[in-house]
C-alpha cells in the first residue's frame, strides 16, 4: 500500500503524532485514516480489526486532548525509574 506524505501527516496528526492539527480534529477518526496509520506503523491491521479498535480510539479522544494540551517546562526530562527524595 502506498501512503502519500499528505495523508500520512494528516493521519499522524489525528492519532497524536503531530500536535496542532490534532487539536481541531473531530473525535471520530475515519477508518481510512486508521488504515493509513496502521500501514505507516507496520502493523497493517485488517479492516475488521480496525473497526474493533476504532471505538476505543474514539472514546479516548477527549482524554488525549487534555493530555496533549498540557504544557511542560522545556527543562523536564522523561523518567523511567523513580526520583530520589
Amino acid at each position: 500500500m502506498t501512503v502519500s506524505r499528505r495523508r500520512l501527516l494528516q493521519s499522524l496528526a489525528l492519532t497524536g503524532g503531530a500536535g496542532p492539527a490534532a487539536e481541531g480534529a473531530e473525535p471520530g477518526i475515519p477508518l481510512e485514516v486508521l488504515r493509513s496509520v496502521s500501514a505507516a506503523h507496520g502493523t497493517n491491521l485488517s479492516d475488521d480489526r480496525l473497526r474493533v479498535v476504532k471505538p476505543v480510539l474514539d472514546s479516548r479522544a477527549g482524554q488525549l486532548r487534555a493530555f496533549r494540551n498540557f504544557e511542560i517546562d522545556d527543562t523536564v526530562s522523561p523518567t523511567l525509574g523513580i526520583l530520589e527524595y
Binding site: 492519532t15 503524532g17 474493533v52 479498535v53 480510539l57 511542560i72 523536564v76 523518567t79 523511567l80 523513580i82
Partner: peptide, 26 residues
C-alpha cells in the same frame, strides 16, 4: 483489542507521558 489500540500511540505521546511522570514525581 486493547493491545491493537495501543499500537496507535505515537512515540511523541509516550515520551510526553514519561515527562509528565517526572512532573508528577516532583
Amino acid at each position: 483489542e486493547r493491545l491493537e489500540a495501543a499500537t496507535f500511540h505515537s512515540a511523541a505521546d509516550y515520551i510526553k507521558a514519561l515527562r509528565i511522570r517526572t512532573v508528577l514525581m516532583e
